[in-house]
Amino acid sequence: MAGRRRGRLSVWRFITLRLLQAIPVILVVITATFFLVRIAPGGPFDSEKPVTREVRAALEAQYRLDLPLHRQYLSYLGDLARGDLGPSFKYSGRSVNELIAAGFPVTAELGLYALLVALVVGGGAGIIAALKPHTAQDYLPMSAAMIGICMPSFLLGPLLVLVFGIHLDWLPVSGWGDISGDKVLPSITLGAAYAAYIARLGRAGMLEVLHQDYIRTARAKGLPQWQVVLKHGLRGGLLPVVAFLGPAFAGLLAGSFVVETIFQIPGLGRFYVQAAFNRDYTMILGTTVFLSVLIVLFNLLSDILAAWMNPRLRAQYGRH
């Protein structure tokens, strides 16, 4: 019992420690983004029709651009603390919060499906390949994985559209949730590269573990091969995959920029790219902060998951 309680305590300790470490990261993100956007050449209203001095002043006051920089920064921090990301420069009358609330659920759904594709296809392929290394059972999925890694989503997406959408006419080529089946191609497009990475990571991890002495012990116990692999091999072998989930999530979000553009999906990624083109500063600022916090938290989550799966890591954090 004592050991168990110590184990659990150290998990909490680990989480607290990592949460505390995340705070400076998030602060750096906010600060860097804020000042970067502020030093950007050209004001937000430059591209529009010339406005009178009065209107301009009124606009600047509305967006608090008339205050000194440090006051702007502080008030922005204050707004952030209340969860207010401010109004959009471009879509007058809409707040960044509203835009994110509209776009994020779509992006999240897309990301979730893509992650599912990546884990199921990639993880499965990796394990299958590791069971019989240097045979067709290994080479086939690994060649597919290599193609997946070398074929970027912005090439794969159009090609899939060309083949399955246009030539074969099996699946819709754009939209999200409008026609049945329109979620298939975007999810595959976004998930493919990560499936490939996970397949390679999973294979390497499983191979490493299957050479460990304790696998020999398990075989010496008389367990059948599938039990040896599933009960003794899987956990250690998939640890690198779990640790990869954090970076993968960040990559998926960035990848959604492209996929949402290709398939014309009204998600956060597309909003972000549009905001970047339109120099919609508050939108860029707000989305960057939102996504960054999300990514930091997801990194944390995958670290915690990896630590929870590895009792030695748990103990390491329990001792200090």
């Binding site: 979000l253 960035a254 972000y272 960057t288 960054s292």
Partner: peptide, 12 residues
């Protein structure tokens, strides 16, 4: 831990 992809977009 910084989301660099987003930052590069921002930088450009």
């Amino acid at each position: 831990a910084l989301p660099f992809m987003i930052f590069i977009v921002l930088l450009t």
